[in-house]
Amino acid sequence: MISDIKLRTARTEDAEKLLEIYRPYVEKTAISFEYEVPSLDEFKGRIINTLKKHPYLVAEKDGEILGYAYTSDFVGRVAYDHSSEMTIYLDETKRKMGIGRKLYSAIEGICKAQNITNLYACIGYPETEDEYLTKNSAEFHAHLGYRLAGKFYNCGLKFGRWYHMIWMEKIISTHGAAPAPVIPFPELDRKVLLEIGVQDS
């Protein structure tokens, strides 16, 4: 049951399991445009760097990690501070269980608390679905309220095939003339996380 799934902040000691989840996306799909699976040390570094500013959550049941999601800088210029890019990967045997929706809902709540206004997802998109890439990710995001914001044609080459890339966008807060500054994830009140349903460790 989805209610049995716990969300918590990722730790560096989760890296081996998270990398295990990520590996098939690199090796067997065009969902990730990476060609090589990162090393364990590199992956640990990614977790550490993400958590300096952004949420990085894992979903687990009975101590088993089922998937993870995090945000990152959108573009990386100061003017884009109130926007974040979403990323999610689930254990390939644990899909269609509501885990993705639960992770995204929690991340969205955290982003609102951080004073983020816009969420973006960068998604590989096939002209015709094949064994490496389907349109499932775009459909998942559309179900969660994301809309198509842009499409880049035949810009990703993997497995000898060209794939499109799309950006999808969700506006989660109003755009004021003088928005409150973005609160880095480590500086959020831990009570906020508990209210959202996320354990801090």
Results as ranks from 00 to 15, higher is better:
24 P>L: 13
122 C>S: 11
76 G>C: 02
153 Y>A: 15
194 L>Q: 12
38 P>N: 14
124 G>I: 03
49 N>K: 15
185 F>V: 00
112 K>V: 08
117 T>S: 14
140 F>L: 08
67 G>Q: 02
27 E>D: 12
63 G>L: 08
164 H>Q: 07
117 T>F: 12
89 Y>N: 06
125 Y>C: 01
74 F>S: 04
201 S>M: 10
83 S>P: 00
121 A>C: 12
8 R>D: 06
93 T>Q: 07
43 F>M: 02
101 R>F: 05
36 E>G: 09
184 P>H: 00
146 Y>F: 15
181 P>G: 00
114 Q>C: 10
30 A>M: 05
159 F>K: 15
35 Y>F: 13
186 P>S: 04
195 E>A: 08
191 K>V: 00
75 V>H: 13
63 G>E: 04
143 H>T: 10
70 Y>C: 01
102 K>V: 03
162 W>M: 15
156 G>F: 08
178 A>Y: 10
73 D>V: 09
72 S>M: 06
151 K>Q: 15
126 P>W: 07
118 N>L: 13
87 T>I: 05
122 C>N: 04
65 I>D: 07
13 E>Y: 04
139 E>A: 07
147 R>H: 15
53 K>C: 03
157 L>N: 15
72 S>P: 01
176 G>Q: 11
149 A>I: 13
171 I>H: 02
165 M>C: 13
169 E>Y: 15
72 S>E: 09
141 H>Q: 06
10 A>V: 02
54 H>D: 05
63 G>W: 10
13 E>H: 02
68 Y>W: 12
139 E>Q: 08
132 Y>N: 07
35 Y>I: 11
96 K>M: 05
178 A>G: 01
84 S>K: 08
97 M>W: 04
94 K>G: 04
154 N>Y: 09
192 V>E: 10
173 S>L: 03
142 A>H: 08
102 K>I: 01
152 F>M: 14
8 R>T: 02
162 W>G: 06
86 M>R: 01
85 E>W: 03
89 Y>R: 06
16 E>Q: 12
79 A>N: 12
64 E>R: 14
1 M>I: 05
153 Y>E: 10
24 P>Q: 11
35 Y>V: 10
142 A>T: 15
156 G>C: 14
178 A>M: 06
98 G>N: 04
2 I>A: 02
91 D>A: 00
165 M>G: 09
142 A>L: 11
44 K>N: 08
177 A>G: 05
100 G>M: 06
51 L>Y: 01
